[in-house]
């Protein structure tokens, strides 16, 4: 169990009553579902993948045939926006997973071993944390160059320190808990204690954070793509689509607007759920919330 089961049950009960939180959950669910089935629902598949160039269909405003209009290559914007959600989903999940793997590993080792190894690892982590994450991501992306994999790597490299620190703090406190002592007294082998007693009890804050961070990952990937060091065209990605339409914003507003809205709604979903979670985990605010209805 990555998240303490009692917590999950409890949070779900709380979430049920929170309309905004439920909206957030809905938006996130929408994002994930569309991301998964995107290739099958795009009206113009070749447009979506960027494989076409139809001069006669260029720069058409929204119409029945093209609800989001067409871009300067004559590609259907709706299809591009839908397919872009898949890439955002891939990026979000990959970044968060990769960062978790690296971060949790570092935090676990540092927290469990403590001493000078722990301090050293945390010092290194702190060095990374001293930089604003986007800046770090930009630095890495510039070195690695454009491309989907590079975006994922660049973002993960800038992200893992947060999870390392979260994990470190948790592990440091969990290893002093009586149930860890009890496991030692019962003769349970140290590796099993690490895996089943320390790790699961340290993961909850960091996995929750990771899930909610997916929104931020989508946003940062879009930012990288927007300034030209993210995904390689013609791969559709919301940030890239926005920047594509940027120079034409006055004449063909639809090219940037719709990807922008999609990005906004997705990030909003994660933020709303994140807000509900923050409310849930703060006892004072939570009691006020429970008094509602």
């Amino acid at each position: 169990m990555m998240i303490a089961p009692a917590l999950l049950k409890d949070f779900i009960a709380f979430l049920r009553k929170d309309k905004l939180g439920l909206l957030g959950l809905l938006l996130i669910a929408g994002f994930i579902i569309i991301g998964v089935i995107a290739p099958y629902i795009v009206p113009y598949p070749e447009d979506a993948w960027g494989l076409t160039y139809n001069v006669e269909r260029r720069l058409q405003p929204p119409s029945r045939a093209h609800p989001f209009g067409t871009d300067e290559y004559g590609r259907d914007v709706l299809s591009r926006v839908i397919l872009a959600s898949r890439f955002s989903l891939i990026i979000a999940i990959s970044v968060v997973t990769l960062s978790l793997i690296i971060g949790v590993a570092v935090g676990l080792v540092a927290g469990y071993l403590g001493g000078w190894i722990g301090s050293t690892l945390m010092r290194v982590t702190d060095m990374f944390l001293a930089f604003p994450p986007l800046l770090l991501a930009i630095a890495f992306a510039s070195i690695l160059g454009r491309g989907l994999e590079n975006v994922i790597i660049a973002l993960s490299l800038s992200w893992w320190p947060w999870y390392a620190r979260l994990t470190f703090v948790q592990v440091s406190s969990v290893k002093t808990m009586p149930y860890v002592d009890a496991a030692k007294i019962a003769g349970i082998p140290p590796l099993r204690i690490l895996a089943k007693y320390i790790l699961p009890n340290s993961l909850t804050p960091v996995t929750i954070q990771a899930f909610l961070d997916m929104g931020a990952a989508v946003l940062e990937a879009a930012a990288l793509s927007f300034i030209g060091i993210g995904v390689k065209p013609p791969t559709p990605e919301w940030g890239l689509l926005i920047s594509d339409g940027w120079i034409l914003i006055g004449k063909a507003w639809w090219i940037s607007l719709f990807p922008g809205i999609a990005l906004f709604i997705t990030v909003l979903g994660f933020n709303l759920l994140g807000d509900t979670y923050r409310e849930y985990s703060n006892p004072k605010i939570r009691r006020l919330a429970e008094a509602r209805v």
Partner: peptide, 9 residues
Amino acid sequence: LHIDYRARG
């Protein structure tokens, strides 16, 4: 006097 709490639904 009757007092109720609402917690966790």
